Computed example of a mutant assay.
Amino acid sequence: MKYASLSEFLRNGRAALAKGPIALIFGEDETELDTTLRHHQQLGFKQILLMTPASFDIPEDVADEIIRIDMDSPSGMTMIHAVNDIIAAAPGVWMYYCFNAEYLFYPFCENRTVGEMLTFHTEERRDAMLTYVVDLYAEDLEKNPDAVSLEEALMDRSGYYALARNDPDNHNYPKERQLDFFGGLRWRFEEHIPAIRRKIDRISLFKAKPDLKLRDDFTFNDEEYNTYACEWHNNLTASVCSFRTAKALKRNPGSKYEIDTFKWHNSVPFEWHSRQLLDLGLMEPGQWF
């Protein structure tokens, strides 16, 4: 199904939002757009909404299985507004958002669906899930000048850290059960990244509800949604494995010619398996076994 705009979809197609989990995928360019869609189809999302310019090509077999919404340049605040409009249209439904060339991994995702995971998470009385954006990058930038290669993808095995998230409305005391997480390419090449964009945490999975709003730093206006765990024990977390930062660093004129390689002594091949991310501490199974 295809719609000319988000407003048209919300007028005529909102019945598709009746049952989740729903994946909202924003296509900023055509890089790995098809693999992004196929990956999230395989995870078991009930519905996938692709928001991307009308000129982008999508394989026919994939296009038949998704809802496509035409949107010019779906990045920045445009993407935030789109997510918030869909939240308002589907209270009570679990949602997930990402960009093209980003791939969701959660504990045991090879043999458990995203719906099974969120059912457990809901039983834990959680309405949102913290995800870490784990940077992926091509090993050879001469062969892959856009820094994207599924076959030769690397990731950082260390260099991740967290800082207290201070509350300006409470004398800058640390917020309860909230941290700012850093690492990956945004940390190693921070001179090319605006300070406000250096965090690698997102609340990518969440249950929509009335008056819920996604903010431009990928947190929500409900502070409990921004916590990494409940008060009594650790909860599930997940990872969004992403070529997005590597792409941006190699396309931005200010950094393109400054970076010959993203590889360093802590680079390891990405195995495309949740076990690797669990072993590296880049996601948490909580009480789910």
Rank of each mutant, 00 (worst) to 15 (best):
F99Q: 11
W94M: 09
V93I: 14
E124G: 14
A162P: 00
T131C: 12
I86G: 06
R126K: 07
G92D: 02
M79R: 15
G76H: 09
R186E: 06
L163I: 12
F182E: 00
A162E: 10
V83S: 06
D180C: 10
V134L: 01
A88R: 14
E102T: 09
Y160Q: 03
D140N: 12
C109S: 12
P107W: 11
E191P: 00
S158R: 15
R125T: 11
F120C: 07
C109E: 02
G115T: 13
D146T: 13
V133P: 00
Y106C: 07
E110G: 08
D140I: 07
E151K: 12
P174T: 08
V93W: 02
R126N: 07
M117R: 04
Y96P: 03
I86F: 10
F182R: 02
L154G: 05
G184H: 01
A162C: 01
L118K: 07
K143H: 05
G184K: 01
E152V: 00
H192M: 06
A82H: 07
D135R: 03
L104S: 05
R126C: 07
G184M: 04
A88Y: 09
N100K: 11
E142G: 01
A138W: 07
G183Y: 00
D135S: 09
L104Y: 01
P174G: 09
R126W: 02
H171G: 08
R186S: 10
C109M: 06
A138L: 11
A164P: 11
E151P: 00
F182Q: 01
V148E: 09
N111S: 14
F120I: 08
V83Q: 05
M95Q: 15
L154D: 06
A89L: 02
E191N: 04
D135Y: 04
M117Y: 04
R112D: 08
A153V: 10
